[in-house]
Simulated assay, not measured.
Amino acid sequence: METGNITRVSEFLLLGLSEEPELQPLIFGLFLSMYLITVLGNLLIILAVSSDPHLHTPMYFFLSNLSFVDICFTSTTIPKMLVNIQTQSKVITYECCITQMYFFSLFGLLDDFLLTVMAYDRFVAICHPLHYTVIMHLWLCGLLVLVSWIMCVLSSLLHSLLVLRLSFSAELEIPHFFCELNQMIQLACSDTFLNIMVLYFSVGLLGGGPLAGIIYSYSKIVSSISAISSAQGKYKAFSACVSHLSVVSLFYCTMLGVYLSSAVTHSSQSSAIASVMYTVVTPMLNPFIYSLRNKDIKGALKRFLCKKV
Rank of each mutant, 00 (worst) to 15 (best):
138 L>Y: 07
94 Y>N: 10
97 C>K: 06
104 F>I: 06
124 V>K: 09
160 S>E: 08
156 S>W: 02
214 I>R: 09
97 C>Q: 04
130 L>S: 15
131 H>A: 06
193 F>I: 10
89 S>G: 09
84 N>F: 01
89 S>L: 02
155 S>N: 04
184 M>C: 06
117 V>P: 05
111 D>N: 15
155 S>C: 06
102 Y>G: 05
160 S>Q: 11
202 S>D: 09
143 L>Y: 07
162 L>W: 09
171 E>T: 14
161 L>K: 11
164 L>Q: 13
133 T>A: 13
181 L>T: 14
96 C>M: 09
141 C>H: 00
176 H>E: 13
105 S>N: 14
192 T>S: 07
166 L>D: 03
194 L>R: 04
158 L>H: 06
94 Y>M: 14
119 A>W: 01
123 F>E: 10
99 T>N: 11
154 L>E: 04
179 C>W: 00
149 W>K: 11
199 L>S: 07
193 F>H: 07
211 L>Y: 04
152 C>A: 15
207 G>L: 01
166 L>T: 11
138 L>K: 14
103 F>N: 10
202 S>L: 03
88 Q>A: 08
207 G>W: 00
205 L>P: 01
174 I>S: 04
130 L>W: 05
126 I>D: 00
106 L>G: 09
112 D>T: 11
84 N>E: 00
146 L>D: 06
178 F>E: 03
208 G>I: 01
102 Y>D: 02
162 L>E: 13
94 Y>L: 09
167 S>W: 02
109 L>R: 11
109 L>V: 03
143 L>R: 12
160 S>L: 04
111 D>H: 13
173 E>M: 08
178 F>D: 04
154 L>W: 00
124 V>H: 09
123 F>P: 10
115 L>R: 06
163 V>T: 15
131 H>M: 05
116 T>C: 14
89 S>R: 08
142 G>N: 15
176 H>Q: 09
187 L>D: 03
105 S>P: 07
133 T>K: 10
199 L>R: 02
173 E>C: 11
112 D>V: 08
205 L>A: 08
164 L>V: 12
104 F>D: 02
97 C>G: 15
189 C>G: 14
213 G>V: 08
107 F>Y: 14
206 L>F: 10
195 N>S: 08
186 Q>M: 11
197 M>K: 10
204 G>C: 02
132 Y>E: 01
150 I>Q: 05
179 C>G: 06
209 G>V: 09
154 L>G: 03
98 I>M: 15
154 L>A: 14
118 M>C: 06
199 L>D: 02
100 Q>V: 05
147 V>S: 10
190 S>A: 07
163 V>M: 12
182 N>Q: 07
138 L>I: 12
110 L>G: 10
190 S>L: 07
107 F>I: 06
143 L>T: 14
103 F>G: 09
147 V>D: 01
172 L>H: 08
192 T>L: 01
116 T>H: 05
196 I>K: 11
212 A>K: 00
